[in-house]
């Protein structure tokens, strides 16, 4: 899954673009779908390895690693916030296990945070604040769409 996602990302999705700057990133699916009982330090290390692999292929050393480690760290927090207490959480944070509504809000929050960190670190200035914000927004929409779609295709009954 690790290698599959890296290859999909760098060979196909990195070449996709609409109106110049929109670029979907679905490799973070790997971090999103780690089982909930994975130790937190392991999540961070996996996230770092994933990010650095993408970085090596796209010559953006450190940027993806930073953003991915960041969402790896806030993952338990996000899950706690969006899950109601009575709900019996499944151990696997997937689409089929927890329903479409839960999965959609989970993916949306994580993708938005990831893209915000990623794009602002990439330009490393707030000078083009709004144009970067537009990139964050549109890329996020495409990433969320691609991630949910991939889950529907892979895990249909």
């Amino acid at each position: 899954m690790f290698i599959g996602l890296v290859l999909t990302q760098v060979l196909i999705l990195n070449h996709i673009q609409f109106s110049g700057f929109v670029n979907p990133y679905i490799y973070i699916l790997f971090v999103l779908l780690l089982p909930l009982n994975t130790p937190r330090y392991a999540v961070l290390i996996f996230a770092f390895l994933m990010g650095i692999s993408i970085d090596i292929f796209s010559n953006s050393l450190g940027i993806h690693a930073f953003a991915t480690v960041f969402i790896g760290y806030i993952r338990p927090l996000v899950i706690r916030v969006i899950s109601s207490r009575e709900e019996d959480m499944s151990d696997y944070p997937g689409l089929m296990q927890n329903g479409i509504g839960w999965f959609l809000s989970y993916v949306s929050i994580m993708v938005l945070v990831h893209h915000t960190v990623l794009f602002y670190l990439e330009v490393f200035t707030f000078a083009h604040f709004f144009s970067t914000l537009m990139r964050v927004f549109f890329s996020s929409v495409f990433s969320i769409f691609a991630i949910v779609l991939s889950q529907l295709i892979v895990f249909r009954d």
Binding site: A47, F48, I52, L61, G62, A65, F66
Partner: peptide, 21 residues
């Protein structure tokens, strides 16, 4: 706090990569 420290460590490593590329 090993998780938080590991988090900090990995982020710092990433930033070092960013600025030294």
């Amino acid at each position: 706090n090993h998780v938080f420290l590991l988090f900090l460590f990995l982020e710092v490593v990433s930033l070092i990569f960013v600025f030294n590329f």
